Simulated scan of single mutants.
Amino acid sequence: MRVIALAVVLASLVTGSAMAQPKWAIVVHGGAGVIERADLTPQQEAAYRAAMTKVTKAGGEVLEKGGSALDAIEAAIHLLEDDPLFNSARGAVFTAEGRNELDASIMDGATLKAGAVAGVTRTRHPISLARAVMETSPHVMLMGSGADTFSKETGLEQAEPSYFFTERRWRSLEKFLAEQKLPVPPRPTGPVVADEAAALAHDEGKYGTVGVVALDQAGHVAAGTSTGGTTGKRWGRVGDSPIIGAGNYASDASCAVSATGTGEYFIRLTVAREICALVEHKGLSLQAAADEVVQNKLTALGGDGGVIAVAPDGQMAWSYNTSGMYRARLAAGEPLTVGIYKDEP
């Protein structure tokens, strides 16, 4: 009888453990950087919290209905790319030449297929272009005018360059170029889309990026990242966001990671892949792996930024070595968590 009783207890523990694992999960970031309480007005803080809440819930709804991790990521990043609060698409920073050049990548943890684009200028949603590269082309990465041509031929929504213009980002460029003693290019022409939210955008420095990682009910993870790059970037600079393994990576064998920060350091450390490798090959928990790479390796190298991550078993994590990071997470049966500052969970 004792043996039977013990078997029942063990079975209940196993069942309870399985039940504790969320059937889906999503983690979102809107960029890391110099983000402190004294930097944001109450109106700005409220706007960012509301935006992160909206985006995370939208992705969660896709997952709750049985949608794929890829679908949830694309839906969530669409909202981020349309929101001028964030440095991606609609709110992208300007290059030294006065252009908005957009980068994005997406990766499917189930198949290890990936798609990325760099320096695109006419696609409203670069994350959708990255997914199109992954799913409808034989390539992983396209750049510049070729990527824009592929976007148009694929039938993705196009936008005039002026669509991405925001006054606050333009002023940030003028300030940056003045500090660097570089000439200010002519102000872009064309119809500008008015948006009151653009006036609330906070200049978090050179770290702005958006990203989403998700776990779907089929047990698959995926990751997506989208950015406008760095203010005043020159010579066709490309950061880590479209680099698979650096700013973005996903594998069902380990986890999915999206990064934000000083891209050159994330490329040199292959941050996203390194976190996944520590989970897969060293058996570290997701949080421990993220902290090892961000708090130790990245910091030791002199790099700034952060990551979000999710694992097939439902673990969620974020880690950053800057003063703040716009972040949120949500899982089946768990409450929504939204944070901005270092002293928040």
Rank of each mutant, 00 (worst) to 15 (best):
G245Q: 02
P188A: 08
D203K: 09
V221R: 01
V257R: 00
Q158L: 14
L182S: 11
Q217H: 06
A256N: 03
P242D: 00
A214D: 02
A250Y: 00
I243K: 05
Q180S: 11
P191H: 11
T227L: 02
G211I: 03
V213I: 07
D252L: 03
V212N: 00
E167L: 12
A159V: 15
V238G: 05
D195F: 01
F176Q: 12
T189F: 02
G205Y: 10
G211V: 07
H220Y: 09
F176T: 13
I243R: 06
S254C: 12
G232C: 06
R187E: 14
L200N: 07
A218I: 06
Y249W: 14
G232N: 06
F164C: 03
S254L: 01
G239A: 12
V193R: 06
Y163V: 06
E204W: 06
Q217G: 13
T189S: 14
P242R: 00
G219R: 12
P183D: 09
A214N: 03
T225A: 04
V192D: 00
A246T: 07
C255K: 02
A201Q: 13
L177P: 07
V184D: 02
K181T: 11
P183F: 10
V212P: 01
R171H: 13
P185M: 08
V213S: 03
V212D: 01
G208M: 02
G205D: 11
G205V: 12
H202I: 08
P186M: 04
R168S: 12
D216I: 03
R234V: 14
V212S: 00
E160G: 05
I243T: 08
A253F: 05
A197S: 12
E167N: 07
V238C: 10
R237K: 13
A198I: 07
T189E: 15
P185D: 07
I244Q: 00
G224N: 04
S251D: 14
A253Y: 04
W170V: 10
G228P: 02
S258H: 02
R171E: 15
T230V: 15
G229E: 01
A197H: 11
W235S: 13
P161S: 09
E196I: 04
D252N: 15
V213Q: 01
D216M: 03
V213W: 00
K181Y: 08
A201T: 15
A199R: 12
F165T: 06
K175E: 15
D216T: 05
V192R: 14
L177N: 09
K181G: 06
P183H: 10
A218D: 13
D203R: 11
W170P: 12
Q180N: 09
V210S: 01
A201V: 14
A222G: 10
R187C: 04
T209M: 00
P191A: 14
G236M: 10
P161H: 10
G228Y: 05
V257C: 01
E196H: 10
S226R: 04
Q180H: 13
V238D: 04
Y207T: 13
E174A: 09
V238Q: 07
E179G: 15
E179S: 13
G232E: 04
A222R: 07
Q217P: 13
A222N: 08
I243C: 04
G245H: 03
A246E: 03
A246K: 02
A253V: 04
K206Q: 12
V192F: 05
P242Y: 01
A159G: 09
L215K: 04
V213H: 02
V221P: 03
S241K: 05
I243E: 02
